[in-house]
């Protein structure tokens, strides 16, 4: 069976996350801020007995900030190096099958997108950008290092 992708919207853009890496899709209600942490760390939240580090994908991509004031946000939960993260997205749309290997996007993308891009893949719904979750989680710091 072909690899599955989770289609989400971040900053108005439809992008794909590898579905195998996504443990669940949750609605976050409480968000405990982490003072002094990198700006893309929106805070902490709890899912069952686990602490989730909540990543604001908009900030991670330097597209501005997600407005978290209205309470409930949709987020995709992923695990990376033993830690659980919740990636705040605008919308979780669908799960689709991959129809091709990722290829490099040759046109110039925004700087933030460039950093997290794993290339473009074909799906039944047309071409879509595949996101590198690790790059999304580590945010802007990668650039500084």
């Amino acid at each position: 069976m072909a690899e599955l992708l989770l289609i989400v919207t971040i900053g108005g853009e439809r992008v794909a996350l590898p579905a195998a890496a996504v443990e669940s899709v949750v609605e976050l209600d409480t968000l405990i801020p982490v003072p002094r942490a990198a700006p893309h760390v929106a805070g902490l939240s709890a899912l069952r007995s686990r602490v989730l580090t909540v990543i604001d994908c908009m900030r991670s991509l330097e597209l501005g900030a997600t407005d978290c004031s209205d309470g409930i946000r949709e987020a995709a939960v992923v695990e990376l190096d033993g830690h659980h993260y919740a990636l705040i997205v605008d919308l979780v749309e669908d799960v689709v099958e991959v129809l091709s290997e990722p290829v490099i996007v040759r046109a110039a993308m925004g700087e933030g997108w460039e950093r997290v891009s794993k290339g473009m893949v074909e799906t039944e719904q047309g071409p879509i950008l595949l996101i590198d979750i690790a790059a999304l989680v580590s945010g802007v710091e990668v650039k500084a290092a």
């Binding site: 409480t30 405990i32 982490v34 003072p35 002094r36 942490a37 990198a38 893309h40 760390v41 902490l44 939240s45 709890a46 007995s49 602490v51 580090t53 990543i55 190096d81 830690h83 993260y85 989680v137 580590s138 945010g139 710091e141």
Partner: peptide
């Protein structure tokens, strides 16, 4: 429990934990 690297990078925190009401505390 140890916190995520992005949180530990601040140098302020030793970890995270859940309070009695289930909300995370640093």
């Amino acid at each position: 429990k140890p916190a995520a690297p992005a949180v530990m990078a601040t140098g302020l925190y030793a970890g995270t934990t859940l309070a009695d009401d289930g909300s995370p505390i640093l």
